[in-house]
């Protein structure tokens, strides 16, 4: 799996990161090197090994279906960069 500048450009688009063409070669080289480290994993036999997504075996806890929150709009809008009519304002979304 060779990493090209196109790969990095695509990944940056998916991740919503603007990467300038000046930055692209350095990121490509670094990420290619890091991914090079990963190649050693291929040789490890892992058939039948259950993937581990959690550090500790446990099951999901559940909370009771109760409303405990009240209106806190003012508090939650306080950090927003652009607010209008009680809403978060964003550039026009074209659907």
């Amino acid at each position: 799996m060779s990493i090209t500048e196109d790969t990095i450009r695509h990944v940056a688009t998916l991740a919503r990161l603007e990467i300038s063409s000046a930055e692209l070669p350095a990121y490509t080289g670094q990420i290619a090197r890091i991914l090079g480290l990963m190649e050693q994993l291929r040789a490890i036999p892992t058939d039948g090994v259950e993937p581990m997504s959690h550090a500790v075996e446990m099951t999901i806890p559940e909370r009771l279906d109760q409303v405990v929150n009240t209106d806190q709009r003012a508090l939650l809008l306080a950090n927003a960069p652009d607010v209008e009519a009680g809403c978060f304002r964003v550039p026009k979304i074209i659907e």
Binding site: M38, V49, M52
Partner: peptide, 14 residues
């Protein structure tokens, strides 16, 4: 090739 493989190796490490 990457994520699932890593999760499997994670179990072996544990």
């Amino acid at each position: 090739a990457y994520y699932r493989k890593a999760q499997r190796v994670r179990r072996l490490i544990a």
